[in-house]
């Protein structure tokens, strides 16, 4: 391969560079140990983060570190660059992936699970509506058998959660077991926005009544 630098703009199928020198990022694919673009857009090279602390693993033995710290090549669609303002709203659709932190609204609850609609994935507002599920065992990390869904979520609550599985045909499986995950915005039965008072309680500032929730740690 004589190519020294990858091109700045890419068309699907275009050769970007050898896999021995770059890692594939979003918008690229590997073919015969070469990186090719799979989207139309601008090519970005991300240098690897050097100051990467040792991976914290409590229960697992960490494998050998990544073979080599290669810069990552990615192709981002350049729809934002399009001059016409009418096309500005057009964003590339993203899908929730395992590990993403998402914002969702609770649609309905049952004793076993809370059904939610995923609204925001990472920093991107989703265009399509994807359905998610928080099962009773995924609400918190401790005392899992005492969790009651109606003491954790109510319909209408906005919840921050993590995607743990692509789930079944319709639902993504979500979890709120971490401290910073849980209800971030809710209204009381009287219709007032509530403020968090503890990890499991919200208070209606007007009436002073408490309601039970799995509350996200304010950040």
């Amino acid at each position: 391969m004589t190519t020294t630098t990858p091109p700045t703009l890419a068309i699907p199928g275009q050769l970007l560079g050898p896999a021995s020198r770059y890692q594939p990022g979003p918008g690229t694919h590997l073919h015969e140990s070469n990186l090719h673009a799979s989207l139309v857009g601008q090519v970005h090279i991300t240098q690897p983060a050097r100051a990467l602390g040792p991976a914290k693993r409590l229960t697992k033995i960490t494998p050998a570190p990544a073979p080599a710290e290669l810069p990552t090549l990615s192709v981002t669609p350049a729809t934002q660059l399009a001059s016409a303002p009418s096309r500005e709203k057009k964003k590339r659709e993203v899908l929730p992936e395992v590990g993403n932190v998402v914002l969702c609204r609770v649609i309905r609850i049952t004793p076993r699970q809370a059904v939610v609609a995923i609204l925001v994935c990472g920093d991107t507002v989703l265009e399509a509506e994807w359905q998610g599920l928080i099962r009773v065992q995924d609400v918190r990390a401790t005392e899992k058998d005492r969790v009651k869904i109606y003491e954790s979520f109510r319909p209408g609550d906005v919840v921050r959660a993590e995607v743990i599985s692509l789930g079944d045909q319709t639902n993504y499986y979500l979890s709120t077991t971490r401290n910073e995950l849980g209800v971030i915005s809710a209204v009381s039965e009287a219709g007032n926005t509530m403020v968090p008072v503890s990890w499991k309680e919200l208070m209606d500032p007007k009436s002073g009544l408490m309601e039970l929730r799995k509350v996200a740690q304010p950040q």
């Binding site: 890692q23 594939p24 690229t28 960490t62 494998p63 395992v98």
Partner: peptide, 18 residues
């Protein structure tokens, strides 16, 4: 088998392995 899991970047890498 002990592979690092986590960020979306990681899953992407996994999908694009040799």
């Amino acid at each position: 088998y002990g592979a690092s899991n986590g960020t979306s970047n990681g899953t992407q890498k996994m999908a694009e392995a040799e």
